[in-house]
C-alpha cells in the first residue's frame, strides 16, 4: 500500500535578522522524513521552535521548502501544475489554532464554510447552501447558526465552524495546527471527540500538530516528535509513549504534568 503522504528530507531555513554580511539563520526544518497512510492520524509533538508549525505550513503548500519533497497521493507537490495545485488544495484542508483569528470577522460563519465551495465552484448556489447545512449538522452545530457572525459564537462553536469549513470539499487529509490548545478543557474534550468521529465516519487522514502529549495520545495512531527542526522519533503512538527511544522524547514525557497529584506529603 502506498502512503497518502510521503515527506522526504524536508529542509527549511529562515533568515533571522542581523546585517546581510552576518545574517543569522534559523533551521526550522532539517531533513524531516516520514510517511502517513490514508485514514490515519499522525500526531506531531514538539515545543515552541521545534519546527512543527513550519512543517504544517509546508504540508499545506503555504510555505515552500528549501530542499526535500512532499508527495501527496504519489504526486510531488513541488512540480504540480496550476490545476494540480488546485486539486491538491481541494483534497488537503487546514484547521487552525485560534478560533478567534481563523474566521473572517466580517463574514457570516456560513459564508466562511462555503468559501471553498465557492472557490472551486462545486455545485449550484442551492447545492452549496444545502451542503453548508449538512456540514453544520456534521460538526454538531445548529444549521441556523450559519447566519451568525463569528463574534456571536463561543470559542468551541467557532472551532466547530473551522472544522466544518475544512470538511467542505471532502478532503483526504486535514492538517490541524494546535486546534484545541486555545480551548478550555471541557470544550477541548468536545472538539477532540469530534475529531475522533470524523476519523471513524469519514476516514479522513490527519496531521495533528500540538505541544500537548495527552492530546496526541488520545487522538493519534502515529507520533512524530520534533526537536529543533529535526524529527527525533517516529512510530506507533502506543509504542512511542510506552517505550520512548530518544532522550528528548523521554524528557518531554517526564515534564508532562501528572494526571494525579504527585505530592505525597503536603507542605504544612
Amino acid at each position: 500500500m502506498t502512503a497518502l503522504l510521503e515527506v522526504d528530507g524536508l529542509t527549511k531555513t529562515f533568515a533571522a535578522g542581523g546585517p546581510p554580511w552576518r545574517r543569522r539563520f534559523v533551521h526550522a526544518l532539517t531533513e524531516v522524513s516520514f510517511a502517513l497512510e490514508a485514514g490515519r492520524t499522525l500526531g506531531v509533538v514538539g515545543e515552541s521552535g521545534s519546527g512543527k508549525s513550519t512543517l504544517g505550513r509546508c504540508l499545506l503548500a503555504l510555505s515552500t521548502p528549501d530542499a526535500g519533497s512532499i508527495r501527496f497521493d504519489g504526486a510531488d507537490l513541488g512540480s504540480l501544475s496550476r490545476s494540480g495545485l488546485a486539486d491538491f488544495r481541494r483534497r488537503v484542508q487546514p484547521v487552525f489554532q485560534d478560533p478567534y483569528a481563523s474566521l473572517d470577522p466580517r463574514w457570516s460563519v456560513g459564508r466562511s464554510v462555503r468559501e471553498a465551495l465557492d472557490v472551486f465552484r462545486i455545485g449550484s448556489t442551492l447545492d452549496r447552501e444545502q451542503r453548508v447545512r449538512e456540514l453544520f449538522d456534521r460538526v454538531g452545530l445548529n444549521p441556523e447558526l450559519a447566519e451568525r457572525m463569528p463574534r456571536q459564537l463561543s470559542g468551541g462553536q467557532r472551532q466547530r465552524v473551522g472544522i466544518a469549513a475544512a470538511l467542505a470539499t471532502e478532503p483526504q487529509l486535514i492538517v490541524a495546527d494546535e486546534p484545541v490548545s486555545a480551548l478550555d478543557v471541557s470544550v477541548q474534550a468536545q472538539i477532540l471527540n469530534l475529531f475522533r468521529d470524523l476519523q471513524r465516519d469519514l476516514g479522513v487522514a490527519a496531521v495533528f500538530i500540538t505541544h500537548d502529549l495527552s492530546v496526541v495520545e488520545h487522538i493519534s495512531h502515529d507520533i512524530a516528535v520534533m526537536h529543533l527542526g529535526r524529527l527525533v522519533e517516529f512510530g506507533r503512538a502506543s509504542e512511542v509513549l510506552a517505550r520512548p527511544q530518544h532522550p528528548y522524547t523521554r524528557s518531554l514525557l517526564a515534564a508532562v504534568p501528572p494526571a494525579i497529584p504527585t505530592r505525597t506529603h503536603p507542605h504544612n
Binding site: 503548500a61 503555504l62 495545485l85 488537503v92 487546514p94 481563523s102 473572517d104 469549513a165 470539499t169
Partner: peptide, 8 residues
C-alpha cells in the same frame, strides 16, 4: 491562510 490553503 485558510483562504489561501482553500485555493482562493
Amino acid at each position: 491562510l485558510g483562504s489561501r490553503s482553500r485555493g482562493a
